[in-house]
Design a protein around this nucleic acid. Structure first.
Length: 208
DNA sequence: CGTCTTTGACCCGCGC
DNA sequence: GCGCGGGTCAAAGACG
């Protein structure tokens, strides 16, 4: 689940993060999650500035269907995330939330490295592959990945100038689980009515 | 007719 | 250098 992106030479102390919002998705078939925490200062000043706040981690609390405060390790600096879900009739239940732990590696030598967009992923149990997240996506590719039975789909945000992408694939071990990986950050607000109808839409500014 | 999906080809990074 | 595999492109087709 964790994606190795870049490494950190110095391991900062664990960071605290908290849940910004949590709704039971039985509530009108909508569920939003959000979490935020500060990136390690040394990352912000690094040449990997864009990636300094892309580390995500979230732990599900026990039985009350909410997202609890948790501790982020050096690898798991949480900035923010948002998971939207609005599809009448479809059954989605967020049973787990993964992290694309963006680990920054600041090599002492000058190694040219492709700058990667912020990226995170999460796992959702769902009948449908593409979860409604408030943004409009255009599919631009599909690929069968080795050692998996299910193809991986590639989507790009349809908004002009927005370069956010997402990958959607099903877990090989459990086809009921959908793994969605977002890459990049939206430069605009969600496009559909999901946000407008959301009672806690004031959080949207925080979230992508 | 415009928009979106499909799908084979192509590109490129990485490991050997 | 070569082959493999993941990611992207783009033409063609489907659909509303």
């Amino acid at each position: 689940m964790f994606e190795e992106q870049v490494m950190i030479d110095e391991i900062p102390p664990p960071l605290q993060f908290g849940c910004l919002e949590s709704l039971n998705n039985n509530n009108n078939n909508k569920a939003f999650l959000g979490a935020i925490a500060s990136p390690p200062p040394d990352l912000v000043t690094s040449s990997c500035l864009g990636a300094a706040h892309q580390l995500l981690s979230l732990n599900r609390s026990t039985a009350n269907n909410s997202w609890a405060w948790g501790q982020v390790t050096a690898e798991d600096c949480v900035m923010m995330m948002r998971v939207g879900n609005k599809r009448g009739g479809d059954v989605h239940s967020h049973v787990g939330l993964g992290i694309a732990a963006m680990k920054m590696k600041m090599k002492k030598t000058k190694v040219r490295r492709k700058v990667r967009e912020p990226r995170f992923c999460f796992k959702t149990m769902s009948d449908v592959d593409v979860l409604e997240d408030g943004y409009k996506w255009r599919k631009y590719g599909q690929k069968v990945v080795k050692n998996t039975q299910h193809p991986r789909s590639y989507y790009r945000c349809t908004e002009e100038k927005c370069r956010v992408k997402k990958r959607v694939e099903r877990l090989a071990e459990d086809p009921r689980m959908v793994i969605t990986t977002y890459e990049g950050r939206h430069v605009h607000s969600p496009s559909n009515d999901l946000q407008a109808s959301e009672t806690t839409s004031q959080l949207t500014d925080f979230l992508w």
